[in-house]
């Protein structure tokens, strides 16, 4: 019986197929059984899905909770502050570079400026590699900020998915 069902479903191996065909050729009752099985099989295989009402999809969409709403994820450091930060760093950098050359010929006479420039000048003269150290410090700070920002965005997105 199981072999006949296998045959009706089309799952028989070539050997089994030959065996079944031999059996049904010599036994009309078995052939009738197989015909009924094929009938059942084709009717079941021809089942069609039933459709819900026309408004079903919209009803589902309307009932969805706001789980994955497209919230704007703001970066930790706003672009404007990044610009200010970079600008300030560039300015400091420029001052450090220009001070040793222009200290002697400076025409600016703002209060405390001379003291500041003298201090920076002295510091720089004691640390010849200060420019390089500053550059590295700035780059590292920027890299860390960008990395931290991306990490936070990822984390927030992960929380939204839960």
């Amino acid at each position: 019986m199981e072999l006949l069902w296998k045959y009706a479903e089309g799952n028989c191996t070539p050997d089994e197929k030959v065996a079944v065909e031999r059996m049904i050729a010599s036994d009309p009752l078995l052939r009738k059984e197989l015909e009924i099985m094929l009938d059942v099989q084709s009717n079941l295989a021809g089942m069609e899905a039933q459709s819900p009402s026309l408004h079903f999809t919209q009803n589902v969409i309307d009932a969805l909770p706001e789980l994955y709403a497209n919230k704007e994820i703001e970066p930790l450091v706003k672009p404007i502050w990044m610009k200010v930060f970079v600008g300030a760093m560039v300015a400091i950098f420029a001052v450090i570079i220009s001070i040793p050359k222009s200290s002697g010929t400076s025409t600016i006479s703002l209060p405390y400026l001379e003291e500041i420039t003298n201090f920076i000048n002295n510091t720089v003269s004691h640390l010849p590699s200060m420019t390089i150290q500053f550059s590295i410090l700035i780059l590292l700070s920027l890299a860390m900020l960008v990395f931290f920002d991306k990490m936070m965005i990822k984390r927030v997105r992960g929380l939204m998915m839960i």
Partner: peptide
């Protein structure tokens, strides 16, 4: 995107 998933499977789920 979820609407597309609903439309694709609603008949089978309903059945």
């Amino acid at each position: 995107a979820f609407k597309s998933l609903v439309e694709q499977y609603q008949d089978y789920v309903f059945s």
